[in-house]
Nucleic acid binder design. Structure first.
Lengths: 131, 131
DNA sequence: CAGAATCCGTTACGATACTG
DNA sequence: CAGTATCGTAACGGATTCTG
């Protein structure tokens, strides 16, 4: 399951806007998903790759680096064999959880009530374990 | 002030993901801002254009149509002179407010503590009236 | 006023191959 | 395992022009 935020690209985005820059935290098709999975605890790179199904290493790396730069996640080398890297939410990063939860709840609500194949839709909602 | 969610484009995004589709609600560089401003009450097209500063009519229209389709906002023709169109959040759309508020709060927190030009940054935060 | 239509630059993301 | 390098594509958004 993926927590994608689609279509948020902005080639020449509006600047000088405080709120915009805040939303940039969860910008990217995969970013919210990454936060979502990290909310369940620290996780290694390869584990995240597995969680996020078809994501490519390239994208995952980029998003994690960005989140690290912004202070949302931490990156830690683990001296195991083979060596791995562990990512975790920072204290402030954790605060994004309720926000994501809310958006997902609203999304599910809208999905359910947009009638038609509502039942089918709801049925197709795989384990959306709200953290 | 703009509430942009940047970099969320996805030319060939991961599909079949419930959570992804939920986050798609606030996808787009301007979408969160639109919701943000509509949270203060119904608003006409031209008013939103003014609120969202440099946004183009084309983009605003697209995002509003999308939000309308998803059931986040309503569109209503007003028979005034000149005629105008009024947009408003739906009941469910209103529920996105706390989520946006949270993200903005976290963003401001991170911005403030990422040191360096922190004071300058904080000072430059114009009226971020959390609705 | 509220938009639709066109053209176009930018870039997030995917796919693939390669490295320490 | 955890990336990095290159290439190609889709679509977001900006600018401009035109219409009901």
């Amino acid at each position: 399951m993926v927590l994608k935020v689609r279509k948020n690209r902005s080639p020449a985005p509006p600047s000088g806007c405080a709120v915009s820059e805040c939303m940039a935290l969860i910008a990217g098709a995969w970013t919210p998903n990454i936060v979502w999975y990290l909310a369940e605890g620290p996780r290694r790179f390869s584990e995240l790759r597995g969680d996020l199904a078809p994501i490519t290493a390239r994208v995952l790396t980029r998003r994690l680096r960005e989140l690290e730069t912004r202070g949302v996640v931490t990156r830690r080398h683990v001296a195991s064999s083979p060596p791995s890297v562990e990512y975790a939410l920072t204290e402030i990063g954790e605060e994004l959880r309720p926000a994501l939860r809310t958006v997902v709840e609203v999304g599910l609500k809208l999905k359910a009530r947009s009638g038609q194949h509502a039942s089918a839709t709801v049925a197709s909602v795989r384990h959306v374990a709200l953290p």
